[in-house]
Design a protein around this nucleic acid. Structure first.
Length: 478
RNA sequence: UCCCUGAUAGCUCAGCUGGUUAGAGCACAUGACUGUUAAUCAUGGGGUCGCUGGUUCGAGCCCAGCUCGGGGAGCCA
């Protein structure tokens, strides 16, 4: 068995004179002498120094970008400036060659679009190493947060037969042959012949099932893949994404908003604690990128300052009605700069309105609540005014909606009436309605788009760059 | 799906009003140099100008359709 020291540990070590073995991949080989190598344990590279004429020339020729190597040598204080320690190479072995002429990545800046096409190799770049390390840390932080608060992690089904929720277009799951699908006497596809004996789809949300768990455990959360077959071509939509959906018995909407704000702040702080190098790198990357933009489009704060600002300030809470008033009296509305002008109560807010509220008016995360019932889902709790429901959306700068949630309608009669109005078949959701029949309680929950959280924390502008192998319309490579 | 925009060397991009041999930097190869930090210097190889059709004496450039990317919108997380 070979012992190897990880670069993260070695860069911290000051055991000069001691011999270590390091294994990793070449990032660059400079001056026929200096190997910058990385093993994934840290964003930082180790400099391994080959003494001139101490190694076979043909061996050094093989030190191309991304060749895998094993290096044994003595740790010493670096003579050069960029690093504190370096390894004086005694033994060098190439484990796997990498043909520099065929290997697509070069030690230079590549566009994100180009790297997206090389998704199988992009982990080897600093940017994506940082993003996907951050993704791991944020996922872990979310589990940590809920675990510390006594939530039960619940696995809701990926394949579901309930098509009544209306959260979006669904992917069909079937084993029926596309040619000659079995038909019933009316000529429709006969799903009785299908694998599950009924039409099934990939889940668009675990919420309804999570509510069932909350009625026993009190507080549960889901964290799993979610699928939407919408033909959405934007930087913040994917066909397959991960969603976190807590559901808490006895919580009202205010508790719900507090839980969401606490959770976001907890995981952002956790990422800042665990990934200082990664965030520093991404901050610099973003500053470089913004140099290309005209002055007025640049951010006022750098990435780390933005995250810190988010931690230090209360999210702005206001009702839909208050938001409409602000928008109605806003400059862009008066000067008719909005594409969709706000004239009356009841209109759904467009992206431009949300962005105005978050980025121009309040300049911090905003929680909007108490929306008109017409523009929200059937399960949201109706307010006494008869026109609004206890819904809430959390809007983040640059991202838009990062969380959507509500207090749920726990009163059976009100829920059934609303389902009727919205033509949702109660018979198919008997199991959901049973929670309101048997020991119903007020409860609330929300859905957090995991990739949108990563986008916010990493500063990446496209959802395709925060999920390893993104699935979007016309793209399911790798 | 709609609006705008783009596709030229392995990568990033320039290419004038349609004109004869399509360029640069980086990468790669060869050599020089040797405490470099995306090393530097010299030399060299490298192109189906996204695809299909059209206009024209002549198309990288103009027109139409298609494919894919980017920005915005809708749907939402």
């Amino acid at each position: 068995m070979s012992t190897r020291t990880k670069i993260a540990a070695l860069l911290q070590s000051r055991e000069f004179g001691k011999e270590f073995t390091v294994k990793g991949w070449v990032r660059t080989f400079r001056n026929n002498q200096f190997i910058a190598m990385n093993d994934g344990s840290t964003l930082n590279n180790l400099q391994a120094v080959v003494e001139l004429n101490s190694m076979d020339e043909s061996l050094l020729k093989r030190l191309t970008t991304s060749a895998s190597i094993s290096v044994t040598g003595e740790l010493c204080a670096s003579l050069g400036k960029g690093q504190a320690v370096e390894l004086k190479v005694k033994k060098l072995e190439v484990l796997g060659d990498c043909d520099a002429e065929k290997y697509p990545l070069q030690p230079k800046k590549h566009s994100l679009e180009f790297l997206r096409e090389k998704a199988h190799l992009r982990f080897r770049t600093n940017t994506f190493a940082a993003v996907f390390k951050l993704r791991h840390v944020l996922a872990f932080g979310i589990h940590k947060f809920f675990n510390e608060r006594g939530f039960v992690y619940m696995h809701t089904p990926i394949i579901t037969a309930s098509d009544a929720e209306g959260a979006g277009e669904m992917f069909k799951v079937t084993t029926l042959p596309f040619e000659q699908t079995p038909r019933n006497p009316e000529g429709q596809v006969d799903y009785k012949e299908d694998f599950f004996g009924k039409a099934t789809n990939l889940t668009v949300s675990g919420q309804l099932e999570a509510e069932l768990g909350a009625m026993a455990f009190g507080e549960v959360y889901t964290f799993g893949p979610t699928f939407r077959a919408e033909n959405s071509n934007t930087a913040r939509h994917a066909a397959e994404f991960w969603m976190i959906e807590p559901e808490v018995a006895f919580n009202d909407l205010d508790d719900n908003m507090q839980l969401a704000e606490d959770m976001l702040k907890y995981v952002i702080r956790y990422a800042m604690d665990q990934c200082p190098d990664e965030l520093e790198f991404l901050k610099t990357r973003l500053l470089e990128e913004e140099k290309q933009k005209p002055q007025e489009e640049r951010s006022e704060m750098d990435l780390i300052a933005k995250l810190q600002f988010c931690l230090d300030n209360e999210f702005q809470r206001l009702t839909y009605t208050e938001a409409i008033e602000i928008l109605k009296n806003s400059n862009p509305n008066k000067k008719k700069k909005f594409k969709y002008l706000i004239d009356k109560w009841g209109a759904d807010l467009q992206s431009e309105h949300e962005r105005y509220l978050v980025e121009k008016h309040f300049k911090k995360p905003v929680i909007l609540c108490d929306y008109p019932k017409e523009i929200k889902a059937f399960y949201m709790r109706q307010n006494d005014d008869g026109t609004t429901v206890r819904a809430m959306d959390i809007l983040f700068p640059g991202i838009g909606e990062i969380i959507g949630g509500s207090q749920r309608e726990e009163r059976l009669d009100k829920l059934e009436t609303r389902m009727n109005e919205m033509h949702i078949p109660a018979s198919e959701l008997y199991w959901y309605l049973d929670t309101r029949r048997f020991g119903t309680v007020p409860h609330a929950g929300f859905g957090l788009g995991f990739e949108r959280l990563i986008m916010f924390v990493s500063g990446m502008g496209n959802i395709r760059d925060v999920i390893p192998f993104p699935r979007t319309p016309k793209n399911a490579d790798f």
